[in-house]
């Protein structure tokens, strides 16, 4: 079923599609993280804002990706095959996921610890950066993992409008009745998603050494 010798002949193209896939899926994660942290902070500070922001984010997430991909050029004035459409659409989805994650993560920081920080003389800005945000990391990383994996798979849909990284292998494979492309595409997308997920998991562990220290102490006791 697979034409094995097709692979080495097309390594260059596959490599380019892989790179594009990564760019299309990961840049939105980074941008969305930067946008979501202040939004999540706002949502966590004021119950009224939370009541607006979190459902609004949830609503955004229900828009089918293909609709957003097709609509965006009209809204933004970009070219229909510009990678920007995909990146902006995915940023919207990621923000929708992460605002809630950030708000939940911040809400889960023990209020006694925050109060203790205030009582030590932290001003709100520094307290957020050095106490609340670090303590929110475990929940935040969980949100990031979901968003990243979901982006890596959503990018493929972009192939329907001509920008889709590895997704192009899938659409072409179907048009040309050429299973090799489809299988290679699927396998690479899955491997990419798993790798990204594992890397984020490791990153999370690395930057939150206190979490495992605590677990170790419990089991020893």
């Amino acid at each position: 079923m697979i034409l094995w010798d097709w692979i080495p002949r097309n390594l260059g193209t596959i490599g380019q599609q892989l790179l594009q896939h990564l760019q299309l899926s990961l840049i939105p994660v980074v941008v969305a993280l930067v946008v979501s942290v202040p939004l999540g902070w706002l949502a966590n500070r004021s119950p009224a804002l939370r009541a607006v922001l979190v459902p609004a984010a949830g609503l955004l997430y229900t828009i089918p990706s293909i609709v957003l991909f097709v609509m965006l050029p009209g809204v933004l004035g970009t070219r229909i095959d510009s990678p920007l459409n995909i990146q902006i659409a995915l940023t919207v989805y990621t923000v929708a996921l992460l605002v809630r994650s950030v708000a939940d993560a911040l809400a889960a920081v023990p209020s006694m610890v925050v109060a203790a920080a205030t009582a030590m003389g932290f001003r709100p800005g520094r307290r957020f950066v050095s106490v609340e945000l670090p303590l929110a990391v475990p929940v935040l990383i969980a949100g990031l993992r979901v968003a990243t994996v979901s982006n890596i798979s959503l990018v493929s849909v972009g192939a329907l409008i001509g920008v889709g990284g590895l997704g192009a292998l899938l659409t072409q494979g179907f048009q040309e009745f050429f299973p090799t492309k489809i299988i290679i595409g699927v396998v690479l997308i899955v491997v990419l998603a798993l790798l990204a997920d594992a890397l984020l998991l490791l990153l999370g562990r690395y930057i939150t050494p206190w979490v495992r220290a605590g677990a170790g102490a419990r089991s020893k006791a």
Partner: peptide, 10 residues
């Protein structure tokens, strides 16, 4: 304070 209110991440 009670339960010390220490910073768990430090």
């Amino acid at each position: 304070i009670q339960h010390a209110g220490l910073f768990p991440h430090r």
